[in-house]
C-alpha cells in the first residue's frame, strides 16, 4: 500500500532522513519509535508531502508522490493525518471542522456531510459536542475530534504524529482507545508515538528510528523483548 524507497530529506545542510526503505501493507498498524531528533516525525510528514522530499520515492497505491504529474491534493484525501497539537480550526464548531473538507474537496452536500460527521462523532463518543467550538474541549476531546475530522475524508491510511504527547496523562487513554478501535476495524495506520504500551498491544510491526535511519524493525514482541541492535537496547532501557 505504501512503498518508501531510499527516502532522503534535508533541511538546508542538515540531513534528517538518510536512507529510509519500508513497505507498509494494507490494514497494517506500523508504530514508529525512537529518540527525539531521530527523524520519525519528518518521515511521517513526508508520507503526505507536508515535507518536500529531497531524494528517493514514496509510492502510495502505486502513485509516486515525487512525480510532478501526481495530484498531491488527491493523494492527501486518501491519507488522513492527526497532529500532536490537534490543529482543529478554532473559528469553526466541532461539526463544521469535520464537514469542511468533505464539502469543499469532495463536493458533498451540507446535509450529507453533517450526517456523516455526526456518525463519526458518535464513533469517537463526542456527539453531544457537535455544536461547540474547539476551545471549550479538553485535549483528549480535541484529539478525538481531530481523528473524526481526518476520518471524514474516508482515507485509506491514517498517519498519527505523536497524537498523545500534548495530552494530560489522564486523557491519553481515551485517544488510544479510539485508535485501537480503528486498528481493529482494519485501518492502515502509521503511528509515531512514545506510548510503548500501545506499540506493543496494537502494533503489527515496530520501526525503531535513530539518526535518520530505520535501525531495527520487527514484531513488537521481538523489539521489546529481544532487541538486536545496541541503539535499540539503549533507547528501550531508557523508556521502558
Amino acid at each position: 500500500m505504501i512503498e518508501v524507497k531510499n527516502l532522503k530529506k534535508s533541511f538546508g545542510m542538515n540531513e534528517i532522513l538518510k536512507d529510509i526503505n519500508v513497505d507498509i501493507k494494507s490494514q497494517e498498524v506500523v508504530v514508529v519509535i525512537g529518540p527525539s531528533g531521530s527523524g520519525k516525525s519528518t518521515f511521517l510528514r513526508c508520507l503526505n508531502m507536508l515535507e518536500s522530499i529531497t531524494g528517493g520515492h514514496i509510492l502510495i497505491e502505486g502513485l509516486d508522490l515525487t512525480d510532478k504529474k501526481t495530484d498531491i491534493n488527491k493523494v492527501r484525501t486518501e491519507v488522513g493525518m492527526v497532529f500532536q497539537q490537534f490543529n482543529l480550526f478554532p473559528h469553526k464548531t466541532v461539526i463544521e471542522n469535520i464537514m469542511l473538507a468533505p464539502m469543499k474537496v469532495r463536493n458533498i452536500s451540507a446535509q450529507e456531510a453533517k450526517e456523516k460527521g455526526l456518525e463519526l462523532l458518535r464513533k469517537v463518543g463526542l456527539e453531544e459536542k457537535a455544536n461547540v467550538y474547539p476551545d471549550s474541549l479538553s485535549g483528549g476531546q480535541k484529539q478525538r475530534v481531530a481523528i473524526a475530522r481526518a476520518l471524514a475524508m474516508q482515507p485509506k491510511v491514517m498517519l498519527f504524529d505523536e497524537p498523545t504527547s500534548a495530552l494530560d496523562p489522564e486523557m491519553v487513554g481515551e485517544v488510544l482507545e479510539v485508535m485501537k478501535q480503528l486498528a481493529k476495524e482494519g485501518m492502515t495506520m502509521v503511528v509515531v508515538t512514545h506510548e510503548m504500551g500501545f506499540a506493543r498491544e496494537v502494533g503489527d510491526r515496530v520501526l525503531f528510528m535513530d539518526g535518520g535511519y530505520i535501525v531495527e524493525e520487527n514484531l513488537p514482541k521481538e523489539i521489546f523483548e529481544n532487541p538486536q541492535e545496541e541503539r535499540t537496547k539503549a533507547f528501550l532501557s531508557k523508556v521502558l
Partner: peptide
C-alpha cells in the same frame, strides 16, 4: 496564524487557495 492550521487544512486535501479562504483568512 499557527502553521499547523495550514498543514491540517492541506492534509485534508484542500488546495492552497481553499485552505487560505476557509481556514487561514477567517482567523
Amino acid at each position: 496564524i499557527d502553521k499547523g492550521q495550514m498543514e491540517a487544512a492541506r492534509s485534508l486535501g484542500l488546495n492552497h487557495v481553499g485552505a487560505m479562504k476557509n481556514v487561514i483568512l477567517p482567523q
